[in-house]
Design a protein around this nucleic acid. Structure first.
Length: 381
RNA sequence: GCACAGGUGACCGAGUGGUUAAUGGUAGCAGACUGUAAAUCUGCCGCUCUUCGGAGCUACGGAGGUUCGAAUCCUCCCCUGUGCA
């Protein structure tokens, strides 16, 4: 089988590359918009394509509960269901186990949880998560992990890491024996021999040695890519940086590295410059719906009264359609009026900003120089 | 003109003698948001000072009155709605 990942250029530790999936190429470093429930909230698929998104996320937990993975499988898989022919990555539900604390109980077997939708009881295991993800048919699926809470004592972080290692192992075992069950598996020719890929996830709390050990032992399982999880859970930024740097050293250079759940625009540029290839975050989409826009001049809260008569664009340096067409005054009016279009336009802008940030970084790596790009994007948060 | 009902902070609307500058909403102002239980959540929201602990002033249509104490009870007046003339 063709290799999933190709590196095209280096600039110090940073790399520009390409991930080849059954649903197209993903240029890296890549920012992946979150499409949790089968939609990147507020943005239609055709606009996502226009924005240049090459891969988006779906979420196992949400889609399992509603509309149900069997229904999606029956309709041909998530790509077809949501009419997204580009690459798709599904998260394993590990993060929901973390964020739904109070609704769940964790055991060695897996996670007993109650649906946030109707209170019904469910059990998620590594096998179950992987089964659901195969049914959904994402191009990249994630091992089922436990996102260690923060702060966590060393002993707790170690126990959690050990359980994640066992769960990741089980996820891989299940995947290896069932990966031919992906909904589009019969479509080999068109898919150029590509099939689903599974990534492992590194945990280890905020402990450098645990992080390193978690990375090394996950790498021994030989995944086609590796994610760094358990970050952006409330830790200081320097600590996050240290954990990422530590894990990157322990990960193989020829596989994609994915930092889960980050970050602010300047953060993602920084991580990309350190050699991270993939990132996802709800921030650009959620913040947009809440009126927070990211611009080349920093963050901007569109509901502020000072924009009421501002005829200028959100960001004078932005090349997105929203900035080329609408004024701050109009966008503020839409937001303050509670018009759905506010969320749409704001999200379009923020996603463009994130995706364009990655394009700039990628371009800079191609040119072998990151300094200009980073200084330009460094004061965004 | 008569009879009911009613007049509460920008608006709607609780409160019918005392922990009441006055519950709740809305509107307004500001903030937060990092593998989405999030088009959500938080704070402020009478005025003036403040060492940020608080202090003073003004407020429940208007004017009086009862009472230790009134948005709450009484009297008169003004206004609004509905019905009858």
């Amino acid at each position: 089988m063709k290799s999933l990942f190709q590196i095209q250029a280096h600039a110090g530790p940073a790399r520009a590359g390409r991930i080849s999936t059954a649903h197209g190429e993903v240029e890296t470093p890549a920012f992946m918009p979150c499409g949790t429930a089968g939609t990147v909230k507020a943005v239609p698929q055709d606009i996502l394509e226009e924005l240049g998104a090459q891969i988006i996320l779906g979420n196992t937990y949400h889609l399992y509960l509603r509309p149900g993975h069997e229904l999606i499988r029956g309709l041909g898989g998530l790509h077809k269901f949501m009419s997204w022919e580009r690459a798709l990555l599904t998260d394993s539900g590990g993060f929901q186990v973390f964020s739904l604390s109070g609704l769940r109980k964790i055991t060695e077997e897996g996670v007993h949880f109650r649906s946030h939708l109707d209170g019904t009881s469910h059990l998620f295991t590594p096998e179950r998560s992987t089964e659901v993800q195969i049914a959904l048919g994402g191009d990249i699926i994630m091992a089922f992990d436990e996102c260690t809470e923060h702060p966590a004592e060393r002993a707790r972080a170690r126990d959690s890491m050990e359980m994640t290692l066992r769960w990741v192992r089980r996820s891989k075992d299940y995947f290896e024996s069932h990966k031919n069950e992906v909904p589009w598996s019969g479509d080999e020719e068109r898919r150029a021999g590509r099939t689903q890929a599974q990534f492992g996830i590194v945990q280890g709390g905020m402990y450098v040695d645990l992080r390193r050990e978690s990375a090394e032992r996950t790498v021994e399982m030989d995944f086609s890519g590796y994610a760094i999880g358990g970050l952006s859970v409330g830790e200081p930024r320097e600590q996050r940086l240290e954990m990422i740097a530590t894990v990157l050293e322990a990960l193989p250079r020829d596989r994609p590295r994915y930092v889960m759940g980050v970050g602010y625009p300047d953060e993602i540029a920084q991580y990309a410059s350190m050699g991270v290839d993939m990132m996802d975050c709800v921030l650009p989409t959620r913040a947009a719906r809440h009126g927070l826009l990211f611009t080349s001049e920093g963050r901007l809260n569109i509901k502020n009264v000072r924009f009421a008569q501002d005829q200028g664009p959100l960001d004078p340096k932005c090349g997105c359609k929203v900035c080329s067409r609408y004024s701050r005054a109009y966008l503020r009016h839409l937001f303050v009026s509670g018009e759905p279009l506010a969320g749409v336009l704001n999200t379009v802008h923020n996603l463009w900003f994130y995706l364009d940030t990655m394009r700039s970084v990628r371009h800079a790596i191609g040119l072998g120089d990151l300094s200009g790009t980073l200084s330009g994007k460094a004061s965004l948060a």
